[in-house]
Design a protein around this nucleic acid. Structure first.
Length: 225
DNA sequence: AACCAGGAATGTA
DNA sequence: TACATTCATGGT
């Protein structure tokens, strides 16, 4: 895997889709809530859950700490896996209060790898969620490797798809300039591309990746010139 | 009406 | 390490 391809792919995606300006949230804490709620869940349903939380005034560390499990569970219901996600949210807030005086700024004020492993130690927060928090909430350098990233690279024929999360994370990190806004955009663009077009394998018409795209194109079917 | 969505934890071999 | 299961709602 050469690094130029990774960099070139960014340029192509950026040219095709433009800036995505992720993460869609009003505050770092809301990024964390969204990152937890979006685990194996369509973003549309996460928006509903966050709206319900906002309506019930549950979008703060204190409110989550105080709220009963059943109240919080009911608010985030639309996001699915609500029992587990309630425990994750409460667990995160408890950790933040006990270890960092309830201040995200203090929690984030450590080297990136320290923050990352601290997050990984929390129940309900795995690698992708930890990296989403590191990159989009803390503003530190890492890379969010999700299903879309793996899928896109596999379809380009650049990886087998069986690589570990860490392998792919390093792949992006070594290839790219150490620029947080770039890794933010890159992840967002991979999601955008995967969502907008190349989702299921045999249908890629007019792919923005152009010659890069290895997917079988559907034949010209009456392209009304 | 099956299938999937911006995963993670646990268990097994 | 690698794979299977479970958690669960809502859109296509």
């Amino acid at each position: 895997m050469c690094a130029d391809r990774i960099r070139n792919l960014y340029d192509v995606l950026h040219a095709a889709y433009g800036p995505q300006e992720w993460w869609p949230a009003d505050s770092p804490f809301e990024v964390i809530v969204g990152a937890i709620l979006t685990q194996r869940t369509a973003w549309r349903n996460v928006e509903r859950a966050i709206s319900a939380m906002r309506r019930s005034d549950l979008l703060s560390t204190d409110a989550i700490e105080r709220a009963s499990k059943s109240v919080l569970t009911e608010a985030i219901r639309a996001a699915g896996f609500y029992t587990a996600k309630t425990a994750t949210l409460k667990g995160f807030v408890r950790h933040l209060n006990e270890e960092h005086d309830g201040a995200l700024d203090r929690m984030f004020d450590v080297p990136t790898d320290v923050l990352r492993s601290e997050l990984l130690a929390l129940r309900g927060i795995g690698e992708e969620t930890a990296d989403a928090i590191v990159v989009y909430a803390a503003g530190k350098l890492s890379f969010v490797v999700d299903a879309y990233a793996r899928r896109v690279l596999r379809r380009l024929g650049w990886i087998s798809g069986a690589e570990s999360y860490e392998t792919l994370r390093r792949l992006f990190l070594v290839a790219l300039p150490q620029d947080v806004s770039l890794v933010r955009e890159y992840h967002a663009l991979l999601v955008c591309h995967g969502k907008a077009r190349c989702r299921s394998v045999p249908r890629c018409t007019d792919c923005p990746l152009g010659e890069l795209c290895q997917l079988p194109r559907r034949r010209e079917e009456e392209r009304t010139t």
